[in-house]
Amino acid sequence: MTTTLASRRVPLASPREQLARLAGGPEFDDVLARAGHPPLSPASLEIFQINLGKFCNMTCRHCHVDAGPDRTDAMMSRATVEACLRALDRTDAATVDITGGAPELHPEFRYLVEESRRRGKHVIDRCNLSVLLLPRSAGVAEWLAERGVEIVASLPHYRKRNTDAQRGEGAFEKSIESLRLLNRAGYGKGDPKRVLSLMTNPAGAFLAQPQQSAEPEWKAALQREHGVTFDRLLALNNMPISRFLEWLIDSDNLDGYMQKLVEAFNPATIAGIMCRNTISVSWDGRLYDCDFNQMLDLDSGVTVEHFDPEAWRARRVITRRHCFGCTAGCGSSCGGAAAS
């Protein structure tokens, strides 16, 4: 277990410092152009992602949000939640993707879920699993199940070692206990109204495994070893930002990892990367191309109160070198790999 960069007041807590550490080497737009692609432009908006804040019961070593139990400084207000819903009503986005921190710990979480479902949206809760075991979370799994909310739960590996290495000692046992709880609530058994997706990030300086070939193995292992089931596996590369960036620097892996991401650039991922079909709203109501740009303060200059769908469609996606994380190998989107 680590602590947040913010609580340690280290220079790397600053997005500007993070961008400085990533500088040097090929620029994303240049590599894109060499592959014959124009600069990234928006596709039709499908996902309205709302980051409720950085408050979390866990402090994972790879967290790109720098979330943790001390981050009560960054929590979305009710007024901003209302502004998100007004903006949502001006889009055709079919999915509301709620993230954090641990979104379930936010006081407006249930209100946001209810209002999104009332609008007929598919709702995703990005869940760290252990949060479901807290006394204050009693009944949350069943409550989400009743509303047909998809749960995308983080689990680095189907075995203990890599899970605990990334998420802290004891995280794996808690994750399994929470998965059992979700199974009891009807999740992960093939019911389209109780979809349980597992999200895996590599526990180290290497690319995510291909999710298609890994899924059967994960399903068999979790069923055999722990008697738990889930519906689909999503595999994402780690972004070289925030606490994962700190680990890369401390372990002398930054240059090698960046080189790996650049060398693994896969043009086939471009069509499916998240920045093209997503709008990302921060806890303080600013709009971004994606959650990663959000954490690096690469904002669009627009707040959710002043959201204009036409202007959003006409914007140019902001890119920096961290973007190689989404185009390496099978790539990364909110729905997992961006290419097979």
Partner: peptide, 8 residues
């Protein structure tokens, strides 16, 4: 590791 194997 990239194909999902752990240290054990």
């Amino acid at each position: 590791m990239q194909k999902g194997a752990d240290l054990e």
